[in-house]
């Protein structure tokens, strides 16, 4: 008990908790108007005209916006899983090893999608994929998934790498000394230690894929609008609170998921 209290004091940094809470406040405060205007009677995202559920009804009836939202989540889920697995592998290959030929090139290639503005990759992919689409006559989601996976890799890679960089080899060496096969040592020792990095990386990859506009706009085939490209199309005309409604629903789902995970993990520890 005494020990716990002591460690609590040790961890305290003056002002940090305040800054952190301010940061959380700043993260959520701008969302308040978004949620509020989703209940707006008027067809406007900035002018309050009374309470109504009409935009939820509109979103419910609007096949386009609904399927776009679902498409966004599906693509983001698949792409972020692929990106995270691949990024984890590359991270293992580029950290805590003796320098080798090609290491810098791998590092540069992994980070390259960060550096090139989206429009450039988008136009290049448009030309490349158009050739493949014409040759194979396949217009499915694979193009979107592979494009998203590629630009999500660095976002998953950097947190995982940061985690790995400071990890000691001692435990893995110990496991090897105890005649664990490399795979077992990895599964039982390395992977659990990497997990927070992997988790952080996967979440970043997911939200980055969810956000993408420009690459999706150029890669998508007929009928493959995601929520961001759907919104981009509306930009010139004026965005309706329908978008607020659907975003509020997405926020609701994510909150629900967090709550679920919270209770599940509590059950496990209890």
């Amino acid at each position: 008990m005494i020990l716990r209290r002591r460690s609590f004091v040790i961890k305290r940094m003056p002002g940090f908790t305040l800054l952190a809470l301010a940061c959380f406040f700043a993260l959520y405060m701008p969302l308040a108007p978004l949620v509020v205007y989703s209940f707006n009677e008027g067809n406007n995202i900035a002018l309050w005209e009374g309470f109504s559920l009409r935009w939820y009804q509109a979103a419910w009836e609007n096949q386009l916006v609904q399927s776009a939202a679902i498409r966004s989540i599906v693509v983001a889920t698949i792409a972020s899983i692929i990106a995270t697995v691949l990024a984890t592998m590359v991270a293992l290959a580029t950290t805590r090893t003796r320098p080798y030929r090609g290491q810098t090139i791998i590092y540069a290639m992994v980070n390259q999608p960060l550096v090139v503005p989206e429009i450039v990759t988008a136009v290049a992919l448009l030309i490349l994929f158009a050739l493949i689409k014409q040759a194979t006559n396949y217009h499915g989601y694979a193009y979107l998934v592979i494009a998203h996976s590629a630009f999500c890799i660095p976002f998953a890679y950097l947190p995982i790498r940061a985690r790995l960089e400071g990890m000691d080899r001692v435990l893995e060496t110990a496991a090897a000394d105890l005649y664990a096969t490399p795979w077992r040592a990895f599964k039982r020792v390395t992977l659990p230690l990497m997990l927070p990095g992997i988790f952080a990386g996967a979440m970043l990859a997911f939200v980055i894929s969810l956000d993408d506009v420009v690459i999706t706009e150029f890669v998508k085939s007929a009928g493959q609008d995601t929520l961001p490209t759907y919104m981009l199309g509306q930009l010139r005309r004026s965005i309706t609170p329908e978008i607020n409604a659907i975003s509020t629903v997405l926020l609701g789902i994510s909150v629900l998921m967090v709550t679920l995970i919270f209770f599940l993990s509590r059950k496990k520890t209890a």
Binding site: V123, L126, A130, L131, I132, K133, Q134, H139, F218, S221
Partner: peptide, 10 residues
């Protein structure tokens, strides 16, 4: 740009 590139399906 998209229509010119071809393979768009529209």
């Amino acid at each position: 740009a998209k229509v010119r590139a071809g393979g768009h399906g529209f």
